[in-house]
Simulated scan of single mutants.
Amino acid sequence: MDNPNFDFLKSKFHVSKETFLILKDLASIRKLKIGEEIVKQGGKSNKMAFLTSGLIRAYCTLESGKEITKNIFTPIGFVGAFSSILKNEPSLLCYEALVESTIYEVDFEKFTKLSKTNIDISNLYNRILEYVFIMYEIKQLENMSLNATERYLNLKKQISNIDNLIPQYQIASFLNISPVQLSRIRKEMKDY
C-alpha cells in the first residue's frame, strides 16, 4: 500500500507504521476491470477489500430482473460482503466495479486470527466495524430524511462526474427512484 492509504488509515483509525506494515503483508493488490465482480450474489468470499481507486457498487438482482443498488463505494474505504463473511452465508449482494478500480484484499480469517494476538490489529478491527456502522447509519438517515433531489445532490457532491461514469439506471437505483424521475431532477436542475 502506498502513502495516501497509510495517511487515511493513520488519520481515521490511528494505525501506526508498524501496524501498516503488517497490513501490507496481509494484503494483495487487485486491479478490477469495469463490470468485474469481487463477490457474486449468492456467492461467498472470505476477503474484505480496501478500495483505493475507482467505484464499486453493491446491488442485488430480483427475480423480476430488476437491479437494486444498495451502495456505491468510493475511495478510500472498505468494501465487502461483511454480513456474508461474518455469518458464513451466501452474499445477498453482488459487488461489482463500476469503473476500473484498485483494491487491496485481505483474508478475513487471517486478519481476525491476527487480531486475537495483536492488540493494534484488534483495535483496528474494532475501529473499522465502528466506521462501517457509522457510514451505514448516515446513509440510512439520508434515505429517510432527504428528498430525491437532495440525495442526488449529495451523490454528486461525493462523485462530481457520476453522470459520466455509470448508466442512469444505476444512479436512479441507488437513489431509490426511477430513471424517469432522475431525468426530471436533472432537467429541473438545468432550468435553474
Rank of each mutant, 00 (worst) to 15 (best):
L86W: 12
T112F: 00
G54A: 04
S115W: 02
S84I: 03
L114C: 01
E96L: 00
E67C: 07
S64Q: 06
E130A: 15
N118P: 06
I134T: 12
F82Q: 12
I121R: 02
F108P: 00
K70H: 13
S64N: 10
I76K: 14
K87Q: 15
K70Q: 14
Y131M: 05
G77I: 10
I72D: 07
Y131T: 05
F108A: 03
I128Q: 11
G80K: 09
L124A: 07
I103T: 02
S83V: 14
C94A: 12
T102H: 01
K113T: 09
R127W: 11
T52R: 14
S101K: 01
R57P: 02
Y59W: 11
F111A: 00
K70F: 15
S53L: 10
G77H: 11
V79E: 08
F73K: 04
F111N: 02
Y125P: 04
K113H: 08
S64C: 10
S53C: 11
A97G: 01
A97W: 00
F111S: 00
S84N: 08
T61I: 10
F108V: 02
S122I: 04
E96K: 00
E63N: 13
V79N: 12
L51M: 06
S115C: 02
Y59I: 12
N126Y: 15
Y104A: 03
K116N: 08
V106E: 00
F133T: 13
E89C: 10
S91T: 10
L51K: 06
S101I: 00
L55W: 03
F82V: 15
N118C: 06
T52Y: 06
T69Y: 08
Y104N: 09
S101Q: 02
F133N: 14
T52N: 15
F50S: 11
K116R: 09
T102A: 00
V132H: 08
Y125N: 08
K110T: 06
P75W: 05
I56D: 03
S115F: 02
K110L: 06
C94N: 09
E105P: 00
E67S: 13
L62Y: 06
L124D: 01
T74E: 15
F50E: 10
F111P: 01
D107L: 02
E109H: 04
K116E: 10
I76S: 14
S101V: 01
A58D: 09
F50M: 13
V79Q: 10
L51G: 06
I134R: 10
S122L: 10
S64K: 07
